[in-house]
Design a protein around this nucleic acid. Structure first.
Lengths: 135, 135
DNA sequence: CTTGACTATGTACCTTAGTACAAAGTTTAT
DNA sequence: ATAAACTTTGTACTAAGGTACATAGTCAAG
């Protein structure tokens, strides 16, 4: 068992972030020393890393709280999990499509405007305003 | 020429957003009536729509300010535009890869855990912690 | 037995992209 | 002439995801 700074260091985050996650209920209430210092174990470290990974993948802390319901085997948060995951899949697939369009537009811009002079004549607005986007 | 409410209405945004864009230098300082009311033209409406489209595509207002350098034929903001666009392409391509991985993980979760009971045994943490991600 | 390093709590502050509101001046309609 | 509807400015507030700081208590070393 170790204290908050050690956990923060192991997970590459700030102490304040740990306390913030506790407040957001992403981390369970930790054990305390007699003086009131928080105590953590490897399970907590793993959990923080899990949170960080999901964040990298574009999940909000609210969504992560939801997903942690699986880890915690919490009936309440697991209700409608299948629907939640299905929605997220659709959402992310839409996001991928939009980003693929962004790449095309930017690469088109690069091709058309290989230098500064060409750039000045580049019909930027028209290029983007006339495209259609999934909304 | 019309006033701020008309522009906002034509662009589907709030008046406050227009003023906010002016402050962020995304819109040029507009002409004013004798009483000090802002006056806008179709060019401004087109510009706001352009900003909105780029936003939909995931650009921040700071990046949009940069890109508007092309539209404004502004030497300063156009400097290093090619580098800026190249970096953005790479960034977006990385983002797409990560999101594709998210889709796979979520679909895998759906396959393995077709109902609530299966969900409780789902090794969520292991599933995600053991994967590698582009960073 | 006191200094330095740690922890506790609470509150304030940061960024981004706005939104909301107050107080004052202007324009339009009746 | 005066109310309704507009505009101006400035400031404060929102959400998310933290960061920073002030004040107080705790612990280990010299």
């Amino acid at each position: 068992m170790y204290r908050i700074s050690e956990l923060a260091k192991r997970c590459g985050v700030n102490k304040e972030t740990i306390r913030y996650y506790e407040k957001r209920q992403l981390l369970p209430l930790p054990m305390r020393t007699e003086a009131g210092y928080r105590l953590y174990s490897d399970a907590d470290a793993k959990r923080v890393q899990f949170i960080k990974r999901l964040q990298q993948l574009g999940f909000s802390l609210t969504e992560i709280h939801q997903l942690l319901g699986i880890v915690d085997q919490d009936k309440e948060r697991c209700a409608d999990m299948y629907v939640f995951v299905s929605k997220k899949v659709e959402e992310v697939q839409k996001q991928i499509k939009d980003l693929q369009r962004v790449v095309h537009v930017l690469q088109d811009l690069q091709k058309r405007c290989p230098d500064e002079k060409a750039l000045y004549e580049c019909p930027m607005i028209e290029m983007l305003i006339e495209e259609e986007f999934s909304t």
